[in-house]
Design a protein around this nucleic acid. Structure first.
Length: 677
RNA sequence: GGCGAGAUAGCUCAGUCGGUUAGAGCGCAUGAUUCAUAAUCAUGAGGUCGGCGGUUCAACCCCGCCUCUCGCUACCA
């Protein structure tokens, strides 16, 4: 293992288009915070970097919707997010933002240095342009009729009605969101990062030199690298973002994925004059904490940028987590299926550590995991209250009862105490090993083991009985119990910072560092401790019910909104309608199209002729069960090649509420070629 | 269709290099206990390690095929 002099730890920049929820915390910020708190306790030189990602199209859309400037939007969410992190004790050295001047300068000069080296490819392509507003339109700025489900108001990149991903040139009747005008195609120039050129060294660096990365991360990278990389545009036509520092690039900004990771560097710059040693010295260990959606950016694209720039180090590890579900369903911002941090803070005041504990204990380290309120309650009541809180309380209460709150002078040590010392030694090194290998769930279990040992110690030795027969022995027992509490102060500083502080105050304990864990004299005889106070309180069913009801309500709201029927489209004339030549036809043959999940190749008798039509219905109909079926076919639609097969027409389908497709068939057998009007 | 990750106790998850009887926490059952927030401690029940085949003296682990879940990707007129 290579030894490092210092650490640069970054966390994915949350997108400032909404508040943050437990998924963010569990996947990225809690693990990163544990890692960093641990390093600090070991007196390592570390910078812990976070910040808001404030550019990109969705923010401009929110701004437009609300009729305010994008800066207004990001100011709002940046503050909410920053506040949530602070209140949860995520101990960033700096929480910055990409709308800062220093970031704009850093990102622009990063681009410039790659540009000057000739790293980019320039390409001209045609994109939609709004004449009235005199600007190019991102996919998200174009709406139109979805070519798949016919819903209006589909975005240029995705139809929210049927969920299919689109590209803006597919939309029927595209309209500019900004002016309402029909956009025109116009040439525009962009700069591309030729990732394909870096394939060789990326393969060597990841696949050969970083086999120790988590399997999910390594596998995902291998998948991308094996598939082959392609040049990727680093610029966009937009006026919200980092302006290009080159001439003839009016109204062009850096693509948000290019500027966001540079935000880590800008924030470090903002934090420290000597920032360069955290980014350019090979004795620095760079670690990116992210969610699995970000793997390709942090393992392939950002490293490519850093390496080609020339002066930067590459990440040593990218411990990406999977996703956290909520009560069995995917967390979704747009469907409001989430536990928002700012709401939790209000509804569970002073219980930050409970959530930190639950999210760490059940973190999606190796696969998606599920947050349930029942589990939250159980872990609080059965683990934090019953094991940790209870042990500390027992030790404190007994000390007050027998010794008026002063540590007794221990007498002889027995085999039991010797074994406890050995266990603590073992636990400490296990926590170290687990944290250093990003196994925070295991490390947290190790930590709880201290209190389990304590509870067993008390149950086995029964000081409340011995006090009558062997008071000298009790002194040793209580002394050792309190030392275990003191050890908990140090260990919990990593996982449960608020509780750690509270316990430290209860014990009247001074400064400590990580290695003190092995000392069994952190508290000296005669040392006075404060009155016992509970570290955690039981969470009753009522509180949990309340949360479940809240989610139930959200579910009902969503169902209601999903049941809304698309509004009627704009009026057309009879002439418009009769342009479509729709006929009754019979399916003669049907087979699956190879290497396509959704496609069936059909031979239909339209009455006019027999023709081949490729249709995206394979998920809903098996080829053998539809032969002989009569359907409606739009026969004068311009033919188009699909997967290499010429498709002449379109089978009309009804899209049901769940997105499934159903044939429109005549009620009785009807002559093929019959006109539908 | 291609690729990646996963499937182990009722629940949530560990399982190193192939090696004796597959582990933990929670939950459950029984007992002990009363210092402690009905908390604690001990003991126990509970497993075809997703399915089928193969390699091997020996497979949760390696290989092949299949099923299901999640993700990336192609495809959608």
């Amino acid at each position: 293992m290579k030894e490092f002099k210092r650490y640069t730890v970054t966390t994915a920049l949350p997108y400032a288009n909404g508040p943050i929820h437990i998924g963010h915390l569990a996947g990225v910020y809690v693990p990163a915070d544990i890692y960093v708190r641990y390093l600090r306790l070991k007196h390592q030189d570390v910078v812990f970097i976070g910040g808001s990602d404030e550019h990109g199209v969705p923010i401009t859309l929110t701004a437009r919707k609300e009729g305010v400037s994008p800066q207004k939007i990001v100011d709002r969410y940046h503050n909410i997010i920053k506040d949530s992190f602070e209140k949860f004790g995520i101990s960033f050295d700096i929480y910055s933002r990409t709308s800062n001047k220093i970031h704009h300068e850093t990102a622009a000069s990063f681009f410039k240095s790659l540009y000057d080296k000739g790293e980019f490819i320039e390409k001209t392509s045609k994109q939609f342009f709004d004449d009235a507003e005199n600007q190019f339109l991102a996919d998200r700025y174009i709406i139109g009729t979805c070519p798949k489900c016919g819903a209006e108001n589909a975005y240029g990149d995705q139809c929210e009605s049927c969920g299919s991903s689109l590209s803006s040139d597919e939309l029927i009747n595209p309209v500019s969101v900004i002016s309402g005008n029909k956009p025109v195609l116009k040439e525009t120039k962009h700069w591309y990062l030729p990732l394909d050129k870096y394939e060789n060294w990326l393969k060597q660096w990841i696949l050969e030199e970083h086999k120790e990365w988590k399997t999910n991360v390594y596998g995902q990278c291998k998948s991308w690298l094996d598939a082959g990389l392609f040049p990727r545009a680093v610029t966009r036509d937009l006026n919200w973002g980092v302006k290009l520092p080159i001439p003839q690039a009016e109204n062009k900004v850096l693509y948000v994925w290019f500027d966001a990771p540079i935000g880590y560097i800008s924030a470090t710059k903002e934090l420290r004059q000597d920032w360069e040693k955290y980014w350019k010295d090979s004795e620095t260990k760079l670690v990116h904490f992210i969610g699995k959606d970000n793997i390709v950016f942090h393992c392939i694209i950002f490293p490519a940028m850093l390496k080609q720039e020339g002066s930067y180090i590459l990440p040593e590890n990218v411990p990406a987590n999977e996703f956290l579900n909520l009560e069995g369903d995917k967390i979704s911002t747009s469907r409001n299926w989430a536990v928002w941090l700012h709401e939790y803070l209000e509804e569970f005041p002073n219980k930050q550590d409970v959530l930190r504990y639950v999210l760490c204990a059940n973190a999606p380290e190796t696969k998606d995991s599920d947050f349930t309120w029942k589990d939250f309650q159980a872990r609080n009541n059965n683990e934090l209250v019953a094991i940790f809180g209870n042990f500390v309380n027992r030790a404190l209460v007994l000390t007050h009862k027998y010794y008026d709150g002063k540590l007794p002078q221990p007498s002889e040590i027995t085999q039991v105490e010797q074994e406890i010392r050995e266990e603590v030694f073992r636990i400490k090194s296990s926590i170290e090993k687990n944290i250093e290998n990003y196994k925070f769930r295991e490390a947290l279990k190790d930590f709880m083991q201290i209190s389990r040992i304590g509870n067993k110690y008390l149950a086995d030795t029964e000081p409340w009985k011995l006090i009558k027969t062997n008071p000298e022995r009790v002194k040793t027992i209580m002394y050792y119990s309190l030392q275990l509490c003191a050890i908990n102060v140090i260990l919990s500083e990593v996982f449960l910072p608020f509780t750690s502080l509270k316990l430290r105050n209860l014990l009247n304990m001074g400064k400590t560092d990580w290695e003190d864990v092995l000392k069994f004299d952190l508290l000296k005889p005669e040392h006075k401790i404060n009155n016992a106070e509970l570290l955690f309180e039981i969470i009753d069913d009522e509180k949990i019910e309340k949360q479940l009801n809240k989610l139930e309500k959200t579910k009902k709201m969503n169902e209601l909104s999903e049941k809304t029927i698309d509004p009627q489209k704009e009026e057309i004339t009879y002439d418009d309608f009769v342009k479509q030549d729709i006929r009754i036809a019979t399916i003669l043959e049907a087979e699956k199209v190879e290497k396509a999940d959704k496609l069936l190749k059909l031979l239909v008798d339209t009455g006019v002729d027999k023709r081949t039509i490729v249709s995206g219905i394979a998920e809903y109909y098996k080829p053998e069960e539809i032969i002989g079926k009569q359907v409606c076919v739009l026969i004068n639609l311009a033919p188009r090649k699909l997967r290499g097969i010429e498709s002449a027409g379109m089978i009309l389908m009804a899209t049901d509420q769940d997105g499934s497709l159903k044939f429109i068939s005549p009620e009785k057998i009807t002559q093929n070629g019959s006109v539908i009007s």
